[in-house]
């Protein structure tokens, strides 16, 4: 076997690795995303509102979402009259793929990351922005007034909050001098004099991420009382499930990115006894990520929905100027540092 043959063989191994990793991450996203989070959301909301929540399927109702998935697989897929079938199908697929692509740059533990891209956090911002197109397309392709209005509102909201989110990423990039997620985790804990900037960036990030995920208090796009279900009103079984996958997948990805940027990623306060650094890192990383998710659910079931003008005011008149100023503060801290 010559050198060319050897390279070919290596390439095939690498290709196989890509496909397997993609399948593994997709499965993680489906199970750790909608399958687990929808159940968690229902249990937590029940607990907050002093209800019982799902309890009949499996012990304490823990198999509820599994049963729901099996049910969805057997339901008829309806395409509305005069809807655009191709775009109607492509939209949820695009949203799900965008949620999957986010995970390429998320570090789970030391050395456990799909690819440590040089432009890591910029890449994350770029692929998350693809979701907007999916939502807008889905809303338009449904041939339904509510869907189109919901899609447009959602797009206006998501693009407005992409900016403060981007500035939070920039503050972290300025403080650490890198865009690579792995090196950002390695740079933590941040030196104490960076804290003012870091805390402001973290709060802005959390608010913007809630809005990006279209959750209360920013869930106007799917405000059920006025817009039915927003851009996915017309979506039935699996196409609907794909939107859910995209939505909860993105929620989980934002929480994972928050953990990576502000909570030290895989680093724990103490090493777990008897396990290697990889298991230790993954345990801490997942604990923190799901703690952030829990916080966001807690917010959702505690606050009322805001109006769209209030929502856009928060982004353009408060978060954006504050984060622009914060970026300069971060710059001063680094230069004086």
């Amino acid at each position: 076997m010559g050198l060319g043959g050897l390279l070919d063989a290596l390439w095939q191994v690498e290709f196989l690795r890509m496909v397997v990793l993609a399948a593994v991450v997709f499965t993680f996203l489906a199970v750790g995303g909608p399958l687990f989070l929808v159940l968690a959301e229902r249990k937590i909301s029940a607990w907050i509102q002093a209800r019982v929540g799902p309890k009949h399927v499996g012990p304490h109702g823990i198999l509820q979402t599994v049963a729901d998935t099996v049910k969805l697989l057997q339901k008829e897929s309806i395409v509305p009259h005069r809807a655009d079938v191709v775009l109607f199908t492509a939209a949820p697929v695009l949203v799900a793929v965008a949620a999957l692509l986010d995970w390429i740059v998320i570090p789970f533990a030391p050395g456990v990351i799909v690819r440590d891209l040089n432009v890591g956090i910029l890449y994350f911002a770029a692929v998350s922005s693809l979701t907007v197109i999916g939502i807008l397309t889905g809303g338009w392709a449904s041939n339904n007034k509510y869907s189109l209005l919901g899609g447009l509102r959602s797009a206006a909201q998501m693009v407005s909050y992409e900016l403060p989110l981007g500035f939070s990423l920039l503050v972290v990039a300025t403080l650490t001098g890198t865009l690579s997620t792995v090196r950002i985790v390695e740079a933590q804990p941040y030196p104490a004099h960076f804290y003012p900037s870091v805390i402001v960036a973290a709060v802005v990030f959390l608010i913007a991420a809630t809005a990006e995920a279209n959750r209360i208090p920013f869930d106007l796009p799917e405000a059920e009382a006025e817009l039915v279900a927003g851009y996915f009103s017309e979506y039935t079984p699996m196409r609907f499930a794909l939107f859910q996958l995209g939505e909860y997948g993105a929620l989980l990805a934002s929480s994972a990115l928050f953990t990576t940027l502000f909570l030290g990623g895989w680093k724990g306060p103490f090493a777990l006894p008897g396990v290697g650094p990889v298991v230790d890192g993954m345990v801490w990383f997942l604990l923190k990520t799901y703690a952030v998710v829990f916080f966001l659910m807690w917010v959702r079931w505690t606050y009322p929905r805001s109006r769209i003008d209030q929502l856009l005011n928060v982004s353009w008149k408060i978060l954006l100027p504050v984060s622009m100023a914060n970026l300069l503060v971060a710059g001063v801290l680094v230069v004086l540092g």
Binding site: V25, V97, L242
Partner: peptide
């Protein structure tokens, strides 16, 4: 990134086929 996008799209379309 490209392979993830392709595999993701295929895995997303598969359940549509099951339905």
């Amino acid at each position: 990134v490209a392979v993830f996008a392709l595999v993701g799209a295929v895995m997303a379309v598969l359940p549509l086929g099951v339905v």
